[in-house]
Amino acid sequence: MSYLHLSIALIFVIIPIVLSKTLNLGLERDTIIAVVRSIIQLLAVGYVLKFVFDSENIIYILLMITIMIIAATQNARKKGVSITGITWKVAITLVVIEALTQSILLGFSITPPTAQYIIPISGMVIGNSMVLAILFLNRFTAEVETHQDETELILSLGGTPKQAIRTQLLTSIKSSMIPTIESQKTIGLVQLPGMMSGQIIAGANPIQAVQFQLLILFLLLTTASITSAMLGYLSYPSLFNKRMQMLKRCLAPPEV
């Protein structure tokens, strides 16, 4: 595809803008911003990737992964600001997942140790882990808030913080993993996964494309479970102090 063809494809941008104007949706500005940003961001990433692939230098690969982890951490931490040390807890979770998945992939020679494989797969793993972290933190903070009476009850009967938060923790871990599992049940029936479509369009053998897509799906199952469980077990202790009291700053004041 040439840049000329790509420019013609801007028709697909003009249609929603015209529609927004006629229907008075007021979405023109946001649409234009979104388009401009995606053009700049993706082109920049494209050139960076080309540079990294050409140089084949491990330092650049590590640097890119570090940047991905920092960006993902920044994004996910906002959902858990009431939890002390949430930034490093998210960061460490992402580092562990990245290290674990890459060591299995490279250790068993499932994928070759080149930037062309390591970077896109890392991107998918870290991106997914970030989404899972957000899902988990959203649910967990809501569960803690709505069930603070039960938590206090268990503490008051001589339970430990771990016992007091167990139900909320497990509910949140489970519910944040469900979308990953559910979406895999219907995959390919309605919609071809983006990565696979891309590979097929770029001329890859569909069976090869499917094999890669399956690899990614398996990876994402691990990513989902480890992200939720690890973040959960790192997070809950900071809701309590040494005297096994619930820290009130994590909660809204009770109604009187």
Partner: peptide, 12 residues
């Protein structure tokens, strides 16, 4: 804390 809360019971 655990010992204290078993010694001092609370019903809300």
């Amino acid at each position: 804390p655990v010992e204290l809360r078993r010694l001092v019971g609370l019903a809300l």
